[in-house]
Design a protein around this nucleic acid. Structure first.
Length: 504
RNA sequence: GGCGCGUUCGUCUAGGGGUUAGGACACGGCCCUUUCAAGGCCGGAACACGGGUUCGAAUCCCGUACGCGCCA
């Protein structure tokens, strides 16, 4: 049988980075086995539905390259892929379970449920449940006379359908990542399967869909581990073969807790995939990083593309313990992928960045120059523009520490002499080799070290004290910019240099 | 509180009876160098604790602690 897995998010907000990892592992597993990867939207909880969330999920998966074979927007033979469009199926199955005696109608009001909990708690029960014992004293189709049940149903009275969890049984299942896991049925609640609004709960809809969509492996977050016994029971009562189960370790924030919206915001870590897109992370970097958060290929590779990951992926190499999100490592991945990108692609990215910032776009040759000089010095695409703005705009300010360190009494005279030499070079001969030769010749002539010219020149041309090699930088900037900027700096810097520090 | 899951450098992890406990990020040093990166070399840094099994335990078993998840 062909492998079929699904990513089944609830559209309750923007896609979470942890959700993307779950999707990724499902995707990798499917591709590794040549199976199908399905997107299913679990939108049965009307109260938590967020407008636009489904679009964000789809956009995020696309961005990451996790293309699914079946889903709400691409269709497929087992649709619809949105649970809100499958309500009738769940309702029918809930009632089927009642008929078979594995579930029952319950008419208890919220007040009655609350009263039950209080009563049990007073009696010393720390975690009151609606279960094999307490159900006997509640209002449901197991305790009420058949006649009354029918009357209530016919009168349209509100009811839920609850799972009739057996007593005194150990429910075991094999988790592909954790091995055998066992729960006492005593610990389970008579889970509501169908709510009074006629819509299913997560548990029912999930099991029914996984069955009808012929899901072979359920790969999801560890937070679902404790509801798995209920699902196992449902499969058994429907007479279905349960899929294989695999519960992934959680992604933790640097303090060790679940990476939630709030905790992450406090620690300065974005949680929504959209945040990563907007921050300028490359999908390859995020994918590679997430893949390694709880999994490794078993050799010492660190940089792996999506196809390589798919090739190497297996559930038995998934780690059991939670993984702390390491933002520094993600940035390192981003840098690695920028360095591996073809220059032409980076040129396009820089062009887009300039347009987005409404900055003038230089010609292509110039952009290639910028990219070649900067690609090993940036962690993000936007740094081509923000980190080294001087490629696109003349500097208007000069780093004070640079002035202090490199701007000496004789600097203006040296720079002016250098400017004159540069001016004498023809535009077409303005190469890195040539400007370097001129500078070194001048330094020798004046009996000063090359550094005495190099640093002030950099400062004058860029306003900064660091950056790519000066001569290559000059070659990219070109004759006109260099002359103009040198001239301008000679006018501006001595003045600012002589201004005494403003008293505090 | 109950139940479940987990625990190897600061972080991600390899290793599953005999290893100088390996790699990556981060950190520090050196080299390269006009600066900053990149790169190269080097370094510090871990088996939660206590029992047991065994000639031998990071590795197997039990317990404790701690963390996390779910439920309330």
């Amino acid at each position: 049988m062909s492998v079929r897995v699904r990513f089944a998010p609830s559209p309750t907000g923007l896609l979470h980075i942890g959700g993307l990892r779950t999707a990724l592992y499902n995707y990798l597993f499917a591709r590794h086995h040549g199976g199908q990867f399905i997107l299913r939207i679990e939108d049965t909880d009307q109260s938590r539905y967020v407008e636009g969330a489904e679009e964000d999920i789809i956009r995020s998966l696309r961005w990451a390259g996790l293309l699914y074979d079946e889903g709400p927007d691409v269709g497929g033979p087992y649709g619809p892929y949105r649970q809100s469009e499958r309500s009738e199926l769940y309702r029918r199955h809930a009632h089927e379970l009642v008929q078979k005696g594995y579930a029952y109608y319950a008419f208890d009001t919220p007040e009655e449920l609350e009263a039950m909990r209080e009563r049990l708690q007073r009696a010393g029960n720390p975690s009151p449940k609606y279960n094999a014992i307490t159900r006997l004293s509640m209002k449901n189709s197991l305790t009420l006379p058949e006649e009354e049940v029918r009357r209530r149903l016919e009168a349209g009275e509100a009811y839920v359908i609850r799972l009739k969890v057996p007593r005194g049984e150990v429910i075991r299942f094999y988790d592909e990542i954790r091995g055998w896991v066992a729960f006492e049925s005593e610990e389970l609640d008579d889970q509501v399967l169908l709510k009074s609004d006629g819509l299913p709960t997560y548990h029912l809809a999930n099991v029914v869909d996984d069955h009808y969509m012929q899901i072979t492996h359920v790969i999801r977050g560890e937070e679902w581990l404790s509801s798995t016994p209920k699902h196992i029971l449902l499969y058994r009562y429907f007479g279905w073969e349960p899929p294989k189960m695999a519960h992934l370790p959680l992604i933790l924030n640097p303090q060790g807790g679940k990476l939630s919206k709030r905790s992450a915001a406090e620690l300065g870590i974005p949680v929504n995939v959209r945040d990563y897109i907007e921050a300028g992370f490359l999908p390859e970097a995020v994918v590679n990083f997430l893949a390694f958060l709880g999994w490794n290929p078993g050799d010492e590779r660190e940089i792996m593309t999506l196809p390589e990951l798919a090739e190497a992926f297996s559930l038995d190499r998934v780690v059991k313990s939670g993984a702390v999100f390491n933002f520094d490592k993600l940035k390192w991945y981003n840098q690695q992928y920028i360095r591996r990108k073809p220059d032409a692609e980076l040129v396009e990215a820089v062009r887009r960045e300039l347009i987005a910032r409404q900055m003038p776009v230089p010609d292509e040759a110039y952009l290639f120059g910028v990219v070649r000089l900067m690609k090993e010095r940036v962690e993000f695409i936007h740094e081509f523009v923000t980190f080294s703005r001087y490629f696109f705009e003349d500097p208007t300010e000069y780093a004070p520490e640079g002035i202090e360190k490199h701007w000496k009494e004789d600097t203006p005279a040296l720079l002016e002499a250098y400017r004159k030499r540069l001016e004498a070079i023809a535009e077409t001969e303005f190469t890195a080799e040539r400007v370097e030769a001129e500078l070194r010749a001048l330094a020798a002539e004046r009996g000063v070290s090359a550094a005495r010219l190099i640093h002030p020149t950099r400062l004058a041309l860029t306003g900064m004290t660091f950056g790519p090699g000066l001569f290559e930088l000059m070659a990219v900037l070109g004759r006109e910019r260099c002359l103009r900027r040198l001239h301008r700096a000679l006018e501006l810097i001595p003045a600012s240099w002589q201004v005494p520090p403003t008293p505090e």
